[in-house]
Computed example of a mutant assay.
Amino acid sequence: MSTLPYPSKVILITGASSGIGEATARRLVGLGHRVLLGARRTDRLQKLVEELRTQGGQADYRALDVTDAADFQAFTDYAAQVFGPVDVLVNNAGVMPLSPLNALKTNEWNQMIDVNIRGVLYGIAAVLPGMEARGRGHIVNVASIGAHVVVPTGAVYCATKYAVWAITDGLRQESNVVRATTISPGVVETELADHISDPVARDAMAEYRRIALKADAIARAIAYAVEQPEDVDVNEIIVRPLAGTGG
Rank of each mutant, 00 (worst) to 15 (best):
S2R: 12
T3S: 10
L4F: 13
K9M: 12
I20D: 10
E22F: 06
A23V: 00
T24Y: 04
A25K: 04
L28R: 04
H33P: 07
R34S: 08
A39M: 00
R40A: 08
T42H: 04
E51I: 03
E51N: 09
G57N: 14
G57A: 14
Q58C: 12
A59F: 02
D60S: 15
D60L: 01
R62C: 10
R62M: 10
L64G: 01
V66D: 03
D68I: 01
A69S: 15
A70Q: 11
A70V: 01
A74P: 01
D77N: 12
V82E: 07
V82W: 02
F83S: 06
D87Q: 05
T106M: 08
W109G: 04
N110R: 11
I113L: 12
V115S: 05
R118D: 10
R118I: 09
R118N: 14
L121H: 14
Y122C: 10
A125K: 09
A125Y: 12
L128G: 14
P129C: 03
R134C: 03
G137H: 00
V142H: 07
V142W: 06
S144R: 01
A147F: 14
A147R: 06
V150T: 08
V150F: 02
P152Y: 14
A155H: 02
A155W: 02
C158S: 15
V164S: 14
G170T: 12
G170A: 07
R172K: 13
S175G: 13
S175C: 14
S175I: 13
N176Q: 13
T182E: 14
P185Q: 04
T190K: 03
S197Q: 15
D203N: 15
A204G: 15
A206N: 02
E207G: 10
Y208C: 02
R209K: 10
I211F: 12
I211K: 10
A215D: 09
A215H: 02
A217Y: 14
A219S: 08
A219I: 01
R220G: 09
A221C: 04
Y224D: 13
Q228K: 10
E230A: 08
V234N: 02
E236R: 07
P241M: 04
P241H: 00
A243C: 03
T245P: 01
